[in-house]
């Protein structure tokens, strides 16, 4: 990947998404997702408790909040990977309650994962082909009769190569996905999700673990999705990343929606600063996470220490898996 970190060309933001006064749960002009009373409890701990939430169509919505705010859990609930204890939600006017994950994907709502799920034992091209919907060759009866699916397979391959070129992965198509860098895997996962021409793309921390050079191009790709007519929802815990690309920001803390609104408005809200940063409001999170160089107050130092511990635990896990893979 090229190392030039050109800032994304400024693109116009979508405005006028909501109706009425801005507050948590405000109605949108054209919502694609409507959530009502969704609650998820883990062993007595309420992870998600959302009274009402609407996601605007054809806009980029960022879901932000500190660690443990319930962002990923809400994502899992919306995409059918987890079941809530109560509540209803709909996508494009169709209720999704009790619908399994693969069906929500077929409806045009695809997602990526926080810990990238590129399939390391398949090649990059195979990963892409897996993303294509309605394949005749995936029916077991037809699969052993290649003449039934060869033509479609060729079409899928053309489309996959186009997408790979757009994501600058075309030179890697024969490599096993396991050999890609972390950032490339994120790109592959996103490209793979696009194989099904979704209407809604849900990205869980697309920027986590990606080096700064790739971050820019990832942000560009997210903006492209909107230009292509898709709706994007993404989870991020770094507010500064969000500011540049999001049209709408939803802030979660302790499982609840504490604020929402256009990025510049929301970042100034006291509720956000209180809930999101808690006692650490003078700490630049960019510095804590190591993305931005800067001085840290003692308080910030403690926070950074905490973050490093969590990182270490995650790495320990990853290392265990990696050695298993790499032997």
């Amino acid at each position: 990947m090229s190392a030039d970190v050109a800032p994304p060309a400024p693109r116009p933001k979508s405005t006028g998404l909501h109706t009425g006064e801005i507050r948590p749960g405000v109605a949108k002009v054209d919502p694609i997702i409507v959530v009502d009373g969704v609650r998820r409890v883990f062993g007595g701990l309420t992870a998600v408790d959302v009274d009402h939430l609407e996601i605007p169509r054809n806009a980029i919505t960022a879901l932000i909040g500190p660690n443990g705010a319930g962002k990923t859990t809400l994502f899992n609930l919306l995409t059918g990977f987890d079941k809530p204890n109560a509540g209803t939600w709909s996508f494009d006017g169709r209720s999704l309650a009790g619908i399994p994950a693969y069906k929500t994907a077929r409806m045009g709502q695809v997602r990526t994962f926080q810990l990238t799920k590129s399939l390391g034992l398949l090649t990059v091209l195979e990963n892409m082909k897996l993303g294509a919907p309605k394949q005749a060759g995936e029916r077991i009866g037809a699969s052993i009769l290649p003449f039934l699916w060869r033509k479609q397979e060729a079409e899928i391959e053309v489309k996959a190569r186009e997408l790979l070129a757009r994501f600058k992965l075309d030179t890697k198509e024969k490599d096993f996905a396991a050999s890609l860098s972390g950032g490339q895997r994120k790109l592959l996962e996103m490209a793979r999700a696009l194989m099904s021409d979704p209407t809604l793309v849900m990205l869980d921390e697309p920027m986590a673990g990606v080096n700064p050079a790739l971050t820019q191009s990832l942000l560009d790709h997210i903006l492209d999705l909107k230009d292509l007519g898709m709706t994007v929802v993404f989870v991020e815990h770094d507010m500064h990343m969000v500011r540049h690309i999001a049209d709408w920001v939803v802030v979660m803390a302790e499982g609840r929606i504490v604020a929402e609104g256009p990025p510049d408005t929301v970042m100034r809200e006291q509720a956000v600063i209180d809930a999101y940063l808690g006692a650490h409001q003078d700490v630049d999170l960019g510095v804590v996470t190591g993305r931005v160089a800067g001085e840290l107050t003692p308080e910030g130092e403690a926070l950074a220490e905490e973050a490093r511990e969590i990182d270490a635990a995650i790495e320990a896990d990853a290392a265990a898996t990696e050695t298993e893979d790499g032997k």
Partner: peptide, 18 residues
């Protein structure tokens, strides 16, 4: 292809509508 994908990560394959 789907089967080999499932061997590695069911959730990834499920998220692709399979």
């Amino acid at each position: 292809r789907v089967i080999r994908g499932i061997r590695e990560d069911e959730d990834a394959v499920g998220s692709l509508g399979k």
